[in-house]
């Protein structure tokens, strides 16, 4: 590959995926106070993949830049990403404001242009709202090719090969730069950030911006009407014989 890679990895801070989210009393969203937040698992995989590309092609990668839109605490996930091998970072402080996928994509477009990025790797979705929109919208806005749900990424000559898992098998797509890749779970297993690297990460650049630094209309296009628990499963019954079972199933029109 003749052009050097400037990789951009957008990451998001979400409620820890191992925890069970609780709906707030008003039924308008998820309870966020006193809950542990961590990096979105798909974003963690995106960071890991960027670092692996850099480790495998040292001379090829100019830098890995990570960016996060979120409250001040989002800087924690940036520092972790820096400790894992990213070179620089930008935090865009959104306070408590929710930023919708389209607006996230618009902001990221400007970040990508400013950083002269030519490869953007991001999670296919964040586990808080499961939109699975941002990568695709960003590709549309930038008019770049996109390879979504990546399960394998290889760089050969001046092309990037991305393998995706589809129904009944695998599909491999290739593209020249610039390119957007969204990550699936099987792509890799993220590493631990080691203590020495955590300490070094504190010295790596962290640019602090605010939403108003971007020329984007942030008004909401989506309205959440209600958030509710899935209906509880009804208790089953015991039947005495196969005949009874068949009769019951017929009653329920299951057979």
């Amino acid at each position: 590959m003749s052009t050097k890679l400037n990789i951009l990895v957008p990451v998001k801070r979400v409620i820890d995926f191992a925890l069970k989210p609780r709906i707030n009393k008003a039924g308008t969203g998820i309870e966020k106070t006193g809950v542990k937040f961590s990096i979105n698992p798909f974003c963690d995989i995106a960071v890991e993949e960027a670092v692996r590309i850099k480790e495998a092609h040292k001379s090829l990668v100019n830098k890995i830049h990570v960016v996060s839109i979120g409250p001040t605490k989002a800087q924690d996930v940036l520092r972790q990403s820096l400790a894992k091998g990213a070179d620089s970072s930008t935090h865009i402080d959104s306070g408590e404001q929710e930023v919708e996928p389209l607006n996230v994509a618009k902001i990221l477009k400007q970040v990508a242009e400013k950083n002269e990025s030519n490869l953007i790797i991001l999670g296919k979705q964040s586990i808080d709202d499961d939109s699975n929109n941002t990568g695709q919208m960003l590709a549309g806005l930038l008019n770049w090719p996109q390879a979504t749900n990546a399960a394998k990424v290889e760089i050969k000559d001046d092309e990037v090969y991305v393998t995706r898992e589809i129904d009944g098998g695998e599909e491999t797509v290739k593209s020249k730069l610039p390119l957007i890749i969204t990550t699936d779970l099987r792509l890799n297993e993220p590493r631990f950030a080691s203590l020495p690297n955590m300490m070094k990460a504190k010295k790596k650049p962290l640019e602090k911006l605010k939403l108003k630094d971007f020329d984007v209309d942030l008004s909401a296009r989506l309205e959440v009407l209600k958030v509710e628990e899935p209906a509880a499963r009804e208790a089953g019954i015991k039947v005495g014989s196969v005949d009874e079972l068949v009769a019951k199933l017929k009653d329920l029109k299951a057979i």
């Binding site: 409620i15 191992a18 709202d129 309205e223 209600k226 899935p230």
Partner: peptide, 14 residues
């Protein structure tokens, strides 16, 4: 307009 149900959200994803 969208109704977000928890069944489709992060619990299941986890």
């Amino acid at each position: 307009r969208q109704i977000i149900k928890r069944g489709s959200s992060s619990v299941v994803l986890s």
